[in-house]
């Protein structure tokens, strides 16, 4: 019985709903940035007479083909879908019709990945994955960015308690993202020899590619091994409350470095930093249901 209760508690322990609200707002913001990133590709990759044949795309994977772009496939309607998706991110961030908006965004992300599977990147999968978990989690809809960041004077809503299963699933997902990638990397010759970062810095992904890289190979070898250690450590450090700040610092510094030294990897970095919010609890010192300072002041 004790084990059953402990297992139930993993998923059903009550947490402050603002933790979900923070994730929801950050997720909506990252999706909006991703929509801006996808905007220049919308005609060439998603329209019927673009680069990717729709019939081939529809048969590319084992899943059900649900892409909206199978029927919406000419430039003007595709543009309208993009604008609608951007509007959905704003409403999601504001907590207005949050779950339907999340459903729309999940469909939008899935539609793009199914319609242009050869153009997908790693962060598309992470966003879709988090959209699915969020879709079935509490969203803290009452909290908009103004309330959450205490930017507006007046009475914010009372924070409620909600089960933490969504946050736990997202934390597990972050563990698996980092650890699976490390498992795959340690099996690779170039990660084993430490050559990876030298090749990376010589590749088209590098912002500063040039012959200088070769002269720094020894240092880059060390950084290659450190990358593996950092990727293993980030989720553990984030998970343990005492090391959470260190984990956050290490994770943000790691992904900022990727964004600075890499080209076109900024969105990936943003997406990963957004996932860290599943571990953070800025309201841990104030139990849910307790009056916030603003409310307490207002009522006195």
């Amino acid at each position: 019985m004790l084990l059953v209760d402990a297992y139930r508690s993993i998923w059903l322990k009550q947490v402050d709903e603002r933790r979900y609200a923070l994730l929801r707002i950050a997720f909506a913001s990252v999706i909006l940035i991703n929509i801006a990133h996808l905007w220049p590709y919308r005609i060439t990759l998603l329209c019927a007479d673009g680069i990717i044949n729709p019939a081939v795309a529809s048969k590319s994977g084992p899943g059900l083909y649900l892409s909206i772009f199978s029927t919406v496939n000419s430039p003007a309607p595709v543009t309208v879908v993009f604008i609608a998706a951007a509007a959905a991110t704003l409403l999601l961030a504001w907590g207005k019709l949050a779950r339907p908006m999340l459903g729309i965004l999940f469909w939008f992300l899935l539609s793009i990945m199914q319609r242009a599977p050869v153009a997908t990147s790693g962060w598309d999968f992470i966003l879709l994955n988090f959209a699915f978990i969020l879709l079935l989690s509490p969203l803290g809809e009452k909290w908009n960015p103004y309330h959450l960041l205490l930017l507006r004077k007046g009475s914010p809503p009372d924070p409620q308690s909600v089960p933490r299963y969504g946050l736990v699933l997202m934390q597990l997902q972050v563990f698996v993202i980092y650890w699976q990638t490390v498992i795959q990397k340690i099996d690779d010759y170039y990660w084993q020899t430490g050559d990876f970062l030298t090749y990376f810095m010589l590749s088209h992904h590098s912002r500063f590619a040039g012959s200088w890289v070769i002269h720094w190979q020894g240092f880059l070898d060390i950084l290659t091994y450190m990358t593996l250690m950092v990727e293993l450590a980030i989720p553990i450090l984030l998970w343990i409350p005492k090391t959470r700040r260190l984990g956050l610092f290490l994770g943000v510094a790691f992904h900022l470095s990727i964004a600075i030294f890499g080209v076109n990897l900024s969105i990936f970095s943003l997406v990963m930093i957004m996932t860290f919010l599943a571990f953070l609890n800025p309201w841990h010192h104030r139990p849910p249901g307790a009056a916030t300072p603003t409310r307490a002041k207002a009522s006195s």
């Binding site: 899935l110 790693g122 999968f125 699976q180 170039y190 990376f200 088209h204």
Partner: peptide, 18 residues
């Protein structure tokens, strides 16, 4: 279809293209 596939092979080997 639900996006919960687990394949996280980002940069699992060297990028070869300059």
């Amino acid at each position: 279809t639900t996006g919960v596939e687990q394949n996280w092979s980002m940069f699992h080997t060297i990028p070869r293209v300059h």
